[in-house]
Nucleic acid binder design. Sequence first.
RNA 1: CGGGGUGUAGCUCAGUAUGGUUAGAGUACUUGGUUUGGGACCAAGGGGCCGAAGGUUCGAGUCCUUUCACCCCGACCA
Length: 567
Amino acid sequence: MRRSRAFIPTSKEVPNDATLPSHIFLSRAGFISQVGAGLYNYMPLAKKVIKKIEHIINEEMQNAGAQEVELSFVTPADLWAESARIEKFGKELLRFRDRKENLFVLGPTHEEMMVNLVRNRVNSYKNLPLNLYQIKTKFRDEARPRFGLMRGREFIMKDGYSFHSSYKDLDREFDAMEAAYKKILTRLGLDFRVVEADSGAIGGSGSKELMVLADSGEDTIAVCSKCEYGANIEAAKRSKRGTIPEAPEAEFNKFLTPDTKTIDDLAQFFKVDPYYTVKCVAKRVIYEDVSEIVLFFVRGCDNLQEAKAINATEALDIVDVTEEELAEIGLVPGFIGPLDQDKAKHVIDSDLKNAANMICGANEKEYHFVGVDLGVISEVAYFADIAEVNEGDICPHCDGTLSFTKGIEVGHIFKLGTVYSEPLKAEFLDENGKAQPFIMGTYGMGVSRLVAAVIEQHHDENGCKWTKATAPYMVNIMVSNVKDEAQVALGEELYAKLQDANVEVMLDDRKERFGFKMKDAELIGFPYTVIIGKELAGGNVEIYERMSTQKTEVPADAVYEKLMEMM
RNA sequence: CGGGGUGUAGCUCAGUAUGGUUAGAGUACUUGGUUUGGGACCAAGGGGCCGAAGGUUCGAGUCCUUUCACCCCGACCA
């Protein structure tokens, strides 16, 4: 491509709403343009990058034995009613009616559609397993789209669905997909981590997220310093503490504790480590038809992890409650404890099971219990893992310590089981001629989000740094002065030669100054820019490597070989 | 969905408190010239329904009402 003919509207101006590097540079470098909230046009450069990512995904999916399909974007709302997700998904589902007044939704994900495609067409265990996928535009009417391609309403996703006759086979496929996804991200040149995740609204058991590591990531992940363990903070586990602070010694007693409503106050009042205090987090737990106040107890040094709390209560959602609401049902904010707690349902963090020498609220204003042994309620109370891990906690798999890092979720794989096949009555006949619902897995990967993720991980203050696998053009030939015939001639020659070698190459033949074209090349982020300029008089040109920002001088007649070698 | 903000040239934004020539700047674009190793300089140009609708007024970018869009913080987020 000749730069003079290319549609690449670059700009020095930053869009006023862009804060993330990927958003800023993809806009400035002429990859994307916004048309509405969370809606973007892909211009030629972005389209090329997307195709490259799709190509790699396709190759790895073929290798893994998955077959590509493409399902209708507009999907009948009936299907969504069958799985009951039309309510669950809520306003994120964009609904509309056709001229015959039939209700449709724009597909935000395609579990129902894929199950519908397969049911009644695959009837026998002999035809399983089956793995079908598509790469397609999705639409989610996000309450608040932001961060450019990172969180758009319309986005491109690879979504795959596998069908099995046994859980064992699902496990095998799940592992195969994890391996394939790792391969894809490795080929794309990304630094990533596979982490354990919360299954969220989609349901199912096993769930892993593929996180591209970047400071701007929206997810916090806990990673082990020694082993491979990594988990989304919503799902992260830990071992029991290794070093436990010295326990306060006290007989069980009720103690007057005026004005000590916070853990800090309490720990200071008794001069104990917050480890030995019990924190109460009161929440309103929402179910389909009803809601109620539930008390969550964790150690004073811990915090409640809401995703875990939702799982522990099987709730749809959890919201804050006010002190007034608590007072209404006879609870005393600041002095709520788990002993003799009959005012509200409660969940106690499993780390508190049989914990001794504890201090907790006495459910009476200005009083706390000291010397509490929670062993007395270990048989009757409901214990669950509801505490959020902290940095420095011990890894659940080894003796390493956990630290936090930020990640961009670019892939999520689930073991769905029969969550969709059952309500949608998608069944096959097993070896005994008995009808069984398909056992399913689902595997998503955000293609447009990957475009942004590459830049989040690879950029500097001057612009994009595409990896070799994702670059829209591998080589940019910059003719410094287009009035210099020798420079132009060499540029054209190299341009033709590289094209013949099937290298994707851009020839910057514009009548612009050196600085302008150089800034432009850095902004766009070609992995290699050949600078044909002043040094040509001495027989040399330069190769500018974007990733390292190193310039290397090479003889003009060797530049082709040198480039081929570098790539 | 709650709270806040902004809509004026392709883009970034002045101008709006106090209504009054022909609505501005920078940048981008066109033409000519000078320049040619880090987004150059000079000159001349083109480009606007001041988000939309209604109203007040002799007169509205500016005041009032309605509406739409976009953005920010939060909630939400397979």
